Amino acid sequence: MGNYSLAIDIGGTFIKYAFIDQKLNIIKQWKKETKHFNTKDEFYDYLCENIDNHHIDLIGVSAPGVINEDSLVLSKEAKNVQTMYMTNINKEIELRLKRPTYSLNDGKSAGYCELMIGNGKGSQSSVYFIIGTGIGGCICYKDEIIQGVDRIAGEFSTLPLDFSPTKKGRFKRLGEIASISALIEMYNSRSPVPLKTGEDICNKYLNHDVLAQDIIHQWCKNIILGLSIIIMLYNPEIICIGGGISEEKWFIEKIQEIYKNETHIISDPIITTKIKACKYNNNSNLLGALLYAKKKLATSNNN
């Protein structure tokens, strides 16, 4: 049974799939729109439909939200995936595809990919800071993911920064000032012509637009605030920054430059934590979820 494994990355907009061989080569890749369903059975039927399981030996799943050790989804995320709330991902997929399945939070999947085969490989302590609509993440010690007692370790979006009341009636969170969503909100609050994407703002920055340059600089400082808190709490060997923006060389160089020249937490020679871009981006969730599934399967077989 099985010539390759299946990796699934469940997102609020798209569900991505990949057949991956034993050497982690992607044999086939495809995606489809994430649709809203009223029941969990409709959702999982849609997730698993038209998948030929004859050559699959293992399934690894990357999914949004807080997921406990038994793959129970403990938090509600984007509208299109809210039917997953309080469902057991592994059991639902195993019921339909008849193959062993293991699942992991999407930020942790991306981080685990970097830990095992990316720029965090070989480190004794590492953190993965994934910038997107929010900020996902993963904290690792050697080759283990630190999950936390409630499995929320690495949920950097909700890192509290200020307990002063906000418009939403709660404390300010890192995701509200350092995510791509925050970048767009920061720019549009000062521009007479609103922009829809972070890419649009970055293009203006690269074309020397004064407002975009000012906003990007402040946004990068907000990111570094989060990185500085992580460094003082955990002091890892390396922090790898992921998400689409991390593929831009100028962005990583700007983060490194501001961190070096404008942030002095304590005496510079003492802090040796490196800040780098992730090696994998587009496929990190898929690869990380599968690598995690392989490890869990091996552990299960040994027991």
Rank of each mutant, 00 (worst) to 15 (best):
G122V: 12
I89Q: 06
T101P: 06
E77D: 06
E94R: 06
E94P: 00
S75A: 12
P100S: 10
E92G: 07
I146M: 12
S103N: 11
A110K: 08
I139F: 13
A78S: 14
Y102D: 08
Y141I: 14
F156R: 10
Q147N: 12
N105M: 13
N119C: 11
K79L: 12
D162E: 09
A78V: 12
G120T: 09
M86H: 15
K108T: 06
T133A: 11
T101C: 14
C138A: 08
I152F: 05
Y112R: 11
Y85T: 02
K121V: 15
C140M: 15
A78I: 04
C113H: 12
N88W: 05
L161P: 14
N105A: 05
R151G: 04
N90P: 01
G137Q: 11
T133F: 02
L72E: 10
Y141C: 03
L72C: 04
R151H: 15
N80F: 05
C113I: 09
A153P: 08
G120V: 02
E155I: 04
Y102I: 01
T87N: 09
C138Y: 13
G148V: 10
S71C: 09
K76F: 04
S126K: 06
G120C: 10
V149K: 11
D162I: 00
V73Q: 03
Q124E: 15
I139N: 02
M84Y: 06
G122M: 04
I117G: 05
P100A: 07
E144F: 08
Q82M: 02
L97I: 10
E77K: 00
E144C: 01
I139K: 08
Y141A: 12
G111C: 08
G136I: 12
F156H: 04
Y112K: 03
L159I: 10
D162G: 00
M86G: 00
I152V: 13
I89H: 13
I130T: 10
L97W: 10
S123Y: 15
S71F: 13
F156Q: 00
L161Y: 00
L95W: 03
D143S: 14
N119I: 02
N90M: 05
L159W: 03
I117W: 10
R96A: 04
Q82C: 01
K98W: 03
E114G: 12
K76E: 14
S109I: 07
S109D: 07
C138L: 14
I117S: 03
E114Q: 00
S126A: 14
T83D: 01
